[in-house]
Amino acid sequence: MTKLGKAVQSYLLVTPQTLVFLLFLLFPIVMIAVVSFWQFNGYAMVPAFSFENYLNVFQSEVTLKTYLNTFKFVALVWLFTLLIGYPVAYFLSFYVEELRWQVILFLVCTIPFWTSNIIRMISWVPLLGKGGLVNQLLLQLNLIQQPLEFLLYSDFAVVLGMVHLYIIFMIAPIFNSLMRIDRTLITAAEDMGASGLQIFQEVILPLSAPGIAIGSIFVVTLVMGEFVTVRLMGGGQAASVGKLIQTQIGSLQYPLAAANAILLLVVTLMLVVSILRVVDIRKEL
């Protein structure tokens, strides 16, 4: 086939997929940006070019508070998914010896990801509720006199729920980059007399940094836009940017919701860019 023919073929092949993303990803986001300058007359949105929505967003005290709360969730969920996810991925890639078992155990970690998020969250209720299993156990052991209330419908529950839902997004990229590390490097380090801790610090950790970065990008972006976990596990009090936007959509204030969504997108992109500045992930792609 000619060079031109090949190029045409490539473009034809990527057309359907690109169309899907243009129609349902790019165009909607452009429309959000447009609508964020429109106005709301109490019933419907009216085309306009006003900065009123943005002024509203930046002047509102709620905005800052909600962002601070969302950042708190992001930081906590990121920290826990990393602290739990890294040892899990490290165990799978360096301590499970047969490839077959590595695959099976990795699948065991992955399967819940393919099931319903809603059900996974509801599942915590009989464990953490006021009359739940954890409280029953603690009461019986006489460790507490009153059921602990903070276990469910609290910030604690929100973080727990999100770690449970999103940890696979941290484990998979870290596992991937750990599996790619050339094992002869470890042997070389051992031969030169490095201790186990030194090998981890000087060889394994730096080489798995891109995996950590990719996992962090996933976790950070997923948590930034979260509103379902916050609603189901936070029980009304907990706030997040996603939930704020969802409430505004519920009351049909699309232009205000759009302005908030654009701000959310900008903040999220800034977080992604700053992660990319710390770690170079191009080798992984």
Partner: peptide, 12 residues
């Protein structure tokens, strides 16, 4: 990686 609420709001 785009926050999922943007998809929902945007298409809406």
């Amino acid at each position: 990686i785009v926050p999922s609420i943007l998809i929902s709001l945007g298409i809406g």
